[in-house]
Design a protein around this nucleic acid. Sequence first.
DNA 1: CTAGGGTTAG
Length: 496
Amino acid sequence: MIRANWIVFGKICKKDYLRKHSKSASTYGALESLSGINGLTAKPTKYVLCTALTSCAKTLNWHLGIHIHAYMIRSGYEDNLFLSSALVDFYAKCFAIVDARKVFSGMKIHDPVSWTSLINGFSINGQGRDALLLFKKMLCSQIKPNCHTFVSAISACVGQNGALEHCSTLHAHVIKRGYDTNNFVVSSLIACYANWGHIGDAILLFGETSEKDIVVYNSMISGYSQNLYSEDALKLFVEMKKKNLSPTDHTLCTILNACSSLAVLLQGRQVHSLVIKMGSARNVFVANALIDMYSKGGDIDDAQCVLDQTSKKDIVLWTTMIMGYAQCGRGSEALELFDCLLTKQELVPDNITFTAVLTACNHAGFLDKGVEYFNKMTTDYGLSPDIDQYACLIDLYARNGNLSKARALMEEMPHDPNYVIWSSFLSSCKIYGDVELGREAAEQLIKMDPCNAAPYLTLAHIYARKGLWNEVAEMRRLVHQRRIRKSAGWSWVEVD
DNA sequence: CTAGGGTTAG
C-alpha cells in the first residue's frame, strides 16, 4: 500500500514540477544566445549548444531542447560526446527516459558522464531497478564508475523495493575505491540507509566521516527525524551550530518538522527566531513548516500569525492552516478560513485543500456542509475527488450513523476502499452496533493485514455487545490459531 | 562545453 501511494505521489510531483519549472528566466538567456539557430547570421558553436542543453534540462524547456537536438543532427554534431551526454541528461530530466535511452544507445562511444546521466535518469523517473541494472552493465564495460555515478546509483535505491542490499553493496564498492570521503556520496548513503530504517548504519557512517558539510548534516538530521528520533535530530542540530555550520532553509524545515512531531513549542519558537534572523521566513517551505509546528504544538493562534505575516501565501500554506484548525477541533474557524480563501479568488483550492475542509466538517460533525463542499469540488472547481476525499465523506456519513449510505459510497466510488477507510468504517459499526457491516469490515481488514489484532478485537466487541458469545469465542479461537500477537492492555471485551 | 548529495511542503 505504501509503495502504491509512493507511485501516485511521484506522478503528482512530476506534474507539479513540470508546471512550476517549465519556463524560468534563465531559459530566455539561452534562447537569445541561440538566435542563430533559425538561419540568422551567427551559428551557435557546440559549446553554446551544450550550455543551452544544460539550461533546458534544468528549466525543463522541452521545446528548445528538441530544437537543439534537431539542429545537432542537421549540423553533424550528432557524434559529439559532450553534446550527446548533455542530450541524454536533457531527455532524462524532462521525464522522456525512452528518448534518453535511445540517444545513449545511438552513441558510438560512452564515458562516465553519459553512463551516469542515463543511470540518474532512470532513478529520477522512478525506475530505480533499471538504474541499478544499468549500473551493473556499466561495471562490465570498459568505463569505470566515479563519484557521480555512485551518487546516482545509491539514490536509485531509495524507495525501490528490496534495494537496501544493493545500497550496502554499493557502500562496499565506495569504500574499496576510496570514495567514502566524498560528501556527495556520504550524504546519499546516509539518506538511503535512513530511508530503509537502518538508522544505525547511517549513524556509523556519519561518525566515520570527517570534514562533513551542511548537506551531510542535513541528511543525518532528516534521517533521525524520518525514523522518529526527533530528539536526536534536535541534538545534532545544536551540535551542527556549535561547529559553525550555518543552517540552510532545508535544515530549518527538517528541524521544524522534528519539533512538530515532538510537539515541542519551546524549541520550535527558538527555531522560529532563528528563521527570522536568517531571513528565511519568506521561504514558503519554511513558513509552511512553521505553521505546521505551531498547529501540532497546540498554538493555533501563533500559526495564524505566521500565515498573516507571510506575504506570498500559496495554497499549501492555507491548506496547512485549515488542517491545523480542523485537527484541533475548531471546525467552524477552519471553514471560515476556507471561505475567506475563496472570496479572495487569488488561489485555487486543490484536492488536499478539500481533504482539510472535509476533515474540519468531520471533526465538527457538519454532515450537510461536508456533502456540499464535496460536490463543490467537482461542480465549481473541476476537481475529481481522489480516495482521500472519499474517505472523509464516507467517514462523515458513518460517524453520523448513516452506515448504509457510507457502505454504498464505498461501492460507488471509482477507487478500491483502502485500509484506513475500512478501519474507520469498522469503528463506526462498533459505535452503532452493526454486526453485519462490522463483520464485513473486519473481514476486509484481516484480509489486508492478517497479523493485526485490532479488527478481531473490535468485531469481538461488537459481538459481545449483542450477546453473541459463540462468535466472541470464535474470534478468540482464530486469534489463537493464527498466533496473532496481542499488545499490552489487549482484552476480549473492552470496558467502556 | 556534458553527469552527482539533503524535506521538495498540506
